[in-house]
């Protein structure tokens, strides 16, 4: 994953769900969480910049590298739930 094809995407929490599904994590075939579903009406779909197939490298600056699926999912869930921010910053990579 080169820096050339990474993007920082800000997802504003404008819906009561984030509306994505991820698979993978450390110790699996997919070592970094990959977006497998984007649900209509969710904040991610409204943001329009996240796409199925992208890999999530960081959430609000927290790296997901080396995180197992459960821990990566907890970090994303916390980021959406916290009232400290009205958005989530995802650093994503498009795999060529």
């Amino acid at each position: 994953i080169s820096a050339l094809n990474t993007a920082l995407v800000r997802v504003v929490k404008n819906s009561n769900t984030l509306g994505i599904a991820i698979e993978g994590g450390a110790n699996t075939r997919q070592p970094l969480p990959r977006i497998v579903t984007i649900q209509k009406g969710g904040s991610a779909h409204n943001c329009g910049q996240l796409k199925v197939g992208q890999v999530i490298l960081e959430v609000n600056g927290i790296s997901l590298r080396g995180q197992e699926h459960e821990e990566a999912a907890r970090i994303i869930a916390e980021a959406f739930k916290t009232k400290e921010k009205d958005h989530i910053d995802f650093l994503v990579a498009e795999l060529g």
Partner: peptide, 13 residues
Amino acid sequence: SPPKDYEDEVTFF
């Protein structure tokens, strides 16, 4: 450690 068996674990948010 060998890959665990949660290969296809998917979490929805």
